[in-house]
Design a protein around this nucleic acid. Structure first.
Lengths: 153, 153
DNA sequence: CGTTGAAAGTGGCATATGCCACTAATTGGA
DNA sequence: TCCAATTAGTGGCATATGCCACTTTCAACG
C-alpha cells in the first residue's frame, strides 16, 4: 500500500540483497525436505566439484571470507557431511571433502534443487535466467575499489 | 587457479548470493567511514522515505522476515538512529522513525553511498545497472511457489 | 457482549557473513 | 641457518536473516 515507488530503490546493493532474500527463501523451501539450506547446498556442491579443495580455494570460488567459510562449514562437519584433513605438502592448508553421507545428501538435495531451479526458470525464462547469471558473474568479477580508499598501496 | 569454470554455477540462488557478498563488501567498505553497514543504510533509507512506517510495512517493502527486521533494527535503536512508537489507533502496530541523529547519519552515509554507486556504475555502465536492478526487482516480485509443496492450502 | 480467529510483534535458537587479532607453517633472503 | 614477511586458518565478536512458539490486540460473528 505504501512505499511502492516503481523503482523501489536505486541502490544496486540493496536491490541485490532484497532479491537474494526472496530467492533464498524459495530455494530454502525447496531444499527443506533434505534438511539443507541453499547456502549449504551450494557449499557441498562446490566441494564436490573440486578436487578435495583447500579452504582458501573454496572461499575464493564462492567469494566468501575465509573465516566465514570456516563458520559455515561447521554444521556440515558436525552433521558428518564433510570432513577436513591437512594437505600432505603444506600443513597450513586444510583440505575439504564430502563424506559418503555428504555425497548422498548432496544427491538427494540436487533432486530438490532441480525442481526449484526449473520452477524458477519456467517463470522468468531460462534464457533470461542465464543472462541474469552471466551479468551477476560479471559483476562479481569486477575489481571494485573506492578510488579515495586506496590511493597508493 | 583452480575451479574457474566459465559458468561458475548454474544455480540462480548461489550466483545471486555470491554476487551479493561481493557487492555487499564493496558498499560496506564505502560506507565504513559512517559506521553503517550497507544493510543498515538501506534500512534507514527505507524508513526515511516512508511516513513513519510500521514494522510490517518495512518488512514487506524489503522482502524481509518481520522478526529479522526486528533484530536488524536493534543496533540502530541502541545507537539512537531510530525510535519506535505504537500506532495511535492500533496498539499492535509499531511504527518506526528516524531520530534527528539518524537523519544526520543517513545524510552523511548518502554521500558515501553515492561514491560507491557511481564507482560501480562507471564500471558496469549505468544502463546495465538499471537493467540489472529492473530484472532483480522483477524476480523479487515473482510469486514463486513449489507446485508439489503447496498442492491445496 | 464473549468467543474465535487473524494480525503484528517479540524472543529464542540456528545459520550466514565479515572483520580483527592471533597462531602455525612456509618461503625468501642475508 | 636464522629471522622477517607471507600465507592459511581459527576464535571471538557483531550484524544479518529465518523459523517457530508465544503474547497482545483487533476485528468479526453469533
Amino acid at each position: 500500500m505504501e512505499a511502492e515507488q516503481p523503482g523501489f530503490s536505486r541502490c544496486n546493493n540493496a536491490t541485490l540483497r532484497r532479491t537474494a532474500r526472496r530467492l533464498g527463501r524459495f530455494y530454502d523451501d525447496a531444499l527443506a525436505p533434505s534438511g539443507l539450506k541453499g547456502t549449504q547446498f551450494g557449499l557441498l556442491f562446490q566441494i564436490s566439484v573440486g578436487s578435495e579443495p583447500a579452504m582458501g580455494a573454496i572461499a575464493e570460488a564462492l567469494i566468501m571470507d575465509l573465516s566465514a567459510l570456516g563458520h559455515t562449514l561447521k554444521p556440515l562437519v558436525r552433521d558428518g557431511y564433510v570432513e577436513t584433513f591437512p594437505d600432505k605438502d603444506d600443513r597450513r592448508i586444510k583440505r575439504v571433502k564430502l563424506t559418503p553421507s555428504g555425497q548422498a545428501k548432496l544427491d538427494e538435495a540436487i533432486k530438490l534443487w532441480s525442481l526449484a531451479q526449473r520452477q524458477f526458470e519456467d517463470r522468468i525464462g531460462a534464457e533470461r535466467a542465464a543472462k541474469l547469471r552471466a551479468t551477476l558473474d560479471e559483476v562479481a568479477a569486477l575489481d571494485l575499489e573506492m578510488p579515495t580508499a586506496a590511493p597508493s598501496r
